[in-house]
């Protein structure tokens, strides 16, 4: 029995195309996985399956040695998935978006944590501006504040640093280190290289789809 997340013989498909026949790995608390591979190799598909959004074709998923269902509420409340769309409503401000997210995650009052999250990503000054009028990088910062304001032990991040400036990437790297130091886990799909100090527990290179 090992603690953390274990994937055994996972089959990845997009539509009818087979992306990976049998993918297996283990991730212990405090570690993160860097997924790489060319476009269309199945990075996002893997993250979507693990989040419960995509369908699990074949394979076994274990959490702390016990098999689990990605679509269960238990798994959903311990996981945060950040897609390449930021998941922000354009008509709402950053702060309103985070409050809406709190209601999705069934939290009653998260004002303090939301404030802290926006502070951390230096978005306090723009928190009342509709997201429609923010730049891509600013929207991304708000999306990342979510990770700060809502606790989850597993982060599934699809290109988290896209559109971020140097300072933003540093912020995110610090944030990820804190998360890992507290025993969290993360799986990142990324094309950009992360700062040196972040050493992934595993690097998985998904192959070119044929």
């Amino acid at each position: 029995m090992s603690s953390g997340l274990a994937i055994r013989a996972l089959e990845l498909r997009r539509g009818r195309r087979l992306l990976s026949r049998s993918l297996s790995f283990e991730l212990a608390p405090g570690g993160f996985i860097e997924l790489s591979g060319p476009n269309g190799s199945g990075k996002s598909t893997l993250l979507r399956v693990l989040s419960g959004l995509g369908r699990l074709e074949a394979g076994e998923l274990l959490w702390d040695g016990r098999s689990f269902n990605c679509a269960s509420d238990e798994h959903r409340s311990r996981t945060l998935y950040l897609a390449h769309t930021d998941g922000l409503k354009g008509a709402l401000s950053g702060e309103e978006n985070l409050h809406l997210f709190a209601s999705l995650r069934q939290f009653r009052d998260r004002s303090e944590e939301i404030q802290e999250g926006l502070d951390y990503y230096e978005m306090t000054g723009l928190k009342s501006v509709p997201c429609l009028r923010l730049s891509q990088g600013q929207r991304r910062r708000i999306a990342l504040s979510r990770l700060r304001a809502f606790p989850a032990s597993l982060w599934l991040l699809d290109e988290p640093t896209t559109a971020l400036d140097r300072g933003g990437i540093d912020r995110f790297a610090d944030h990820l280190s804190d998360h890992l130091a507290a025993g969290g886990m993360a799986i990142l799909a990324t094309h950009q290289s992360l700062p040196e100090r972040l050493k992934p527990a595993i690097r998985i290179a998904l192959g070119r789809s044929s």
Partner: peptide
């Protein structure tokens, strides 16, 4: 439509409720 395009619908589905 809009919730779908903005990626908000994903968060609905992934919400533990």
């Amino acid at each position: 439509r809009q919730d779908y395009e903005e990626g908000v619908l994903e968060q609905w589905i992934l919400s533990p409720s």
